[in-house]
Amino acid sequence: MTTLVIAEHENGAIAPATLNTVAAATKIGGDVHVLVAGQNVAAVGEAAAKIAGVSKVLVADNAAYEHQLPENVAPLVVELASAYSHVLAAATSNGKNILPRVAAHLDVDQISEIISVESADTFKRPIYAGNAISTVQSSAAVKVITVRATGFDAVAAEGGSASVEAVSAAHDAGKSSFVSEELAKSDRPELTAAKIVVSGGRGMQNGDNFKHLYTLADKLGAAVGASRAAVDAGFVPNDMQVGQTGKIVAPQLYIAVGISGAIQHLAGMKDSKVIVAINKDEEAPIFQVADYGLVADLFEAIPELEKLV
């Protein structure tokens, strides 16, 4: 039994979600191999070889894989998959884009966003925005699975010594091409990897008021998120959205500011260790999941909080 983990990487570095995915692979048991597909990714391959618990790294270095186009990467994974019992990827926008294509080519059902490994063929995953947890068993010869990073503690990025092997297969479907990318620039920690997240909702009233949250976040070393309501209202960009259809976070501390707590938002943050809610409406559903609730005007509470932490 051997599991292939598709590495997520950006700017020549392994993305944190890969370490959580390797953790899930380790729980399944057997050997863990990692595939690094991209262009000029030798350094990423070296980094992957150091991940704890990984015994082999496959590096597919080809221009066709540069932008992780699923039309090109999926056939590569399919070609490699027959040697594996499981193929795993992080449930990131990239993993979600590529892996179902792999599953369809292999003619197997995928299991999306697992949060626990019950055995080598049985997994738990949330459905209905996390309002129910489904236990799913797979009879597929190759089990194709995406992993919700918050369900698994990351393995160590250092300490392993896997062998590195080049994969020469080049798949270029010629049906899609990369045009451009606009990446959000931020010096703050990445939302899904941050230990503390400060999120704002409709109660922030406008985008400019988010500066109060940025100041607080910088003092705490926190990332800043937002509810769908705040994104829909145009206060902040969509890559800050936490929720069922946005990012799933589970930090040590989640501070929800001016967020009412719709089930779609709770789905994205209710596994946080400690939840703080600051809202002037004491009936807001967010208080039902908050460890510490403060009924207050956020425009008074946030500056005070910033002074005291």
């Binding site: 899609s176 990369f178 045009v179 990318e181 960009p237 890559d239």
Partner: peptide
């Protein structure tokens, strides 16, 4: 134009 974790990406498809 696609919503990706780090922002937005545009691809051209035949």
């Amino acid at each position: 134009t696609r919503e990706i974790d780090a922002g937005a990406q545009t691809v051209s498809l035949k």
